[in-house]
């Protein structure tokens, strides 16, 4: 049993932040790694990349968007409630090293995970440029945290209600044109965003890492449900990832695989409402 010690609603209540009391995991988990949780006895196992941790307080932070049955159920949980199972840390941690200038690109809920990785890059002594985007002003999350981490930060919104208007690829393109010292781009967000970022950086031949979120069950390499094609090879996201070289990832296949259970997800949500 894992207790929720803090709950925060963001982006009009569509994105939720939980601080969970899990001292053993907090001690070991690194940026880029994820956990799998199961809310109750009949629940499914869902993977969530950890957005932050506090080793001394024994707390891990997860931030998730309400999209399906499980996340909708989790939204109803409050401080003091418990989650039945939390397993972790899973996956390989992000490879953090001092490379010089790195650009961290995040969209939607991806910013939550991105800020954890960005923090690690900053702590390693890199010059960190942040580009974060959302659909509109209210949907933007963790701006303050990113400001405190990044040396430079650009905010975009699709409708122009805040920051620059348009997608994150526009300011990214500018940076890539202007700065020649960019060694690495880290992109975390919706599949479409990561795909477009990779398309762009490929022209400049700049290493781009992405964090993938395919369908998973056990998260320990046992089921193979999370297989993604990377550089023509099938990789298991849970043990080989979740971070991969974005230029090699077959995003189209990932997108199709992730939409396999859309109907079931809807059925499951409807069933729980009824």
């Amino acid at each position: 049993m894992f207790q929720i010690v803090r709950k925060e609603e963001m982006a009009k209540g569509t994105i939720i932040r939980f601080d969970i009391d899990a001292p053993k995991i907090a001690k070991k988990i690194k940026a880029g790694q994820f956990i799998i949780l199961r809310v109750n006895e009949t629940g499914e196992r869902i993977p969530l990349t950890v957005a932050d941790k506090d080793e001394f307080a024994g707390i891990i932070t997860i931030i998730f968007q309400v999209v399906g049955k499980t996340t909708a159920l989790m939204r109803t949980l409050n401080e003091g409630d418990v989650i039945l199972d939390v397993v972790g840390p899973l996956g390989k941690p992000a490879e953090i090293e001092k490379t010089g200038t790195v650009v961290m690109v995040g969209g939607g809920t991806g910013v939550a995970i991105l800020h954890h990785v960005a923090k690690a890059f900053k702590e390693a002594g890199n010059y960190v440029i942040g580009i974060i985007g959302a659909q509109e002003k209210e949907m933007l999350i963790m701006e303050n945290e990113m400001i405190s981490i990044c040396d430079e930060l650009v905010v975009t919104t699709d409708d122009g209600s805040y920051g620059e208007r348009g997608f994150v690829t526009i300011p990214l393109g500018k940076y890539l044109d202007e700065r020649y010292d960019i060694k690495l781009v880290y992109a975390i967000g919706p599949i479409v965003m990561m795909k477009n970022v990779c398309k762009l950086t490929k022209k400049y031949k700049i290493l781009t890492m992405v964090s993938l979120n395919p369908i998973m069950i056990d998260g320990t390499g046992m089921c193979g449900g999370c297989r993604v094609k990377v550089g023509g090879e099938t990789k298991f996201c849970c043990v080989d990832g979740p971070d991969f070289d974005g230029h090699k990832v077959d995003f189209d296949e990932l997108e199709k695989r992730n939409s396999l259970y859309l109907k079931d997800e809807k059925d499951s949500l409807l069933y729980s409402i009824r």
Binding site: T42, G43, E44, R45, K69, T70, I217, D218, M222, C223, Y261, D264, E265, D267, S268, Y271, S272
Partner: peptide, 18 residues
């Protein structure tokens, strides 16, 4: 695993799709 551990054969009573 879906069928046995997650009891997907009892979907949607259990959340894991079958």
């Amino acid at each position: 695993t879906r069928m046995n551990l997650m009891k997907a054969y009892r979907f949607p009573e259990y959340d894991t799709p079958m």
